[in-house]
């Protein structure tokens, strides 16, 4: 199966181990989620001003897939409007379900394009995104 090579590619491992997105943000809103079955945990921090994500970061613990996905999320949503972030999230969900999606919106995250075929790992992949989804609901309207 090729997906293994992709999931554990240098790119993914680099993202997973990249310390730059991993910190607490002071004065930011935050939320967390945990995958009880494997213990993976992500807390996301967002600073939203005038409907724009001014800064984002995360702290957490988990497998390469969950950590790389969170790290890519932070990179993808920084400086984007809430509207754009919602569109990104929609496309992430489409990719996860194996539906057509807009590759241009997802940047390096497309390395996970095969995730829909690996139900055992899609939970890991989606963990940070599920936190984001909850947070978007609470920042509704900026």
């Amino acid at each position: 199966m090729d997906w293994m090579k992709e999931i554990y590619s240098d790119l993914v491992v680099r993202y997973a181990k990249d310390p730059s997105a991993r910190k607490e943000l002071e004065g930011a809103i935050s939320a967390r989620d945990k995958n009880e079955s494997c213990g993976d945990e992500v807390r996301l921090f967002l600073k939203v001003e005038d409907g724009i994500v001014k800064d984002a970061s995360f702290i957490g613990e988990g497998c390469i897939v969950s950590m790389a996905s969170a790290s890519m999320l932070v990179k993808l949503i920084k400086d984007k409007s809430i509207e754009d972030v919602k569109k990104i999230l929609e496309n992430v969900e489409k990719m996860m379900k194996g539906e057509e999606y807009d590759e241009d919106m997802l940047g390096d995250l497309v390395v996970f394009s095969g995730i829909s075929g690996i139900p055992a790992r899609s939970k890991c992949f989606y963990l940070a995104w599920s936190v984001l989804k909850d947070m978007l609901q609470s920042v509704q309207g900026g």
Binding site: M4, Y8, I64, C124
Partner: peptide, 9 residues
């Protein structure tokens, strides 16, 4: 290394 990654590889 997370156990999931160990088991997958």
């Amino acid at each position: 290394v997370h156990p999931h990654d160990v088991a997958s590889i």
